[in-house]
Amino acid sequence: MISANAVTKRYPQGIEALKEISFEIEDGEMVFITGHSGAGKSTLFRLLAAVERPTSGSIAVNGQNIAALRRGAIPYLRRKLGLIFQDQKLLFDRSVLDNVLLPLSIVGLPAREAIRRARAALDKVGLLDRERAQPIALSGGEQQRLAIARAVVNRPSLLLADEPTANLDSESASQILDIFRSFHQVGVTLVVATHDAQWMARFSPRVLRLERGRLLGDPA
């Protein structure tokens, strides 16, 4: 599902955010990327989502090499991913339901079918009764769940999340964890960047540990 080979990302100012990273992630795996702030987690997330390209090395997602992807092919790659951004990127000028409808309007699903699917996604994250609400009226945990609903509404087989429980109280974080577990149980591949110890305690997952852009002992 994901295959990284000697991936290096250097930013224009000369900062090497990732240094010669190599790893494989199989279908259906749940993998955590951990490390201190500045270790390179978000950088790796952006490479996997084809938001940025590696400076060198190759990184393949769904069999497509991000480093060599045509610009026009990127949208179609992204549609197969569920992306949960660190800053969520919700749209505050429209309702909860309309936020979840956005990915479906992008793929051009007819309205009736789109609404049915969006409601199903909201139901999965426990926000069905808030579909008319404005995102600004939601709590932090609810906003994060809305971001998850939007990420999964297209039924992706790979879900990428950047610090999905940062800034959440432990109860909200626990709800998020349960939601991720339910996706994992139906076979979705999960890659979660986090430095939240609660995750480790609950799942004892496979961990990729980053330290100043280098990958430390990956047991897999």
Binding site: A49, V51, G72, P75, Y76, L77, R78, R79, L83, F85, K89, L91, F92, D93, L102, P103, I106, V107, R150, A151, N154
Partner: peptide
């Protein structure tokens, strides 16, 4: 700008 940015991040083509 926000809507455009988010749309592109989640798979909108330039044509869209």
């Amino acid at each position: 700008a926000a809507e455009i940015e988010v749309s592109r991040l989640i798979g909108a083509t330039d044509a869209f």
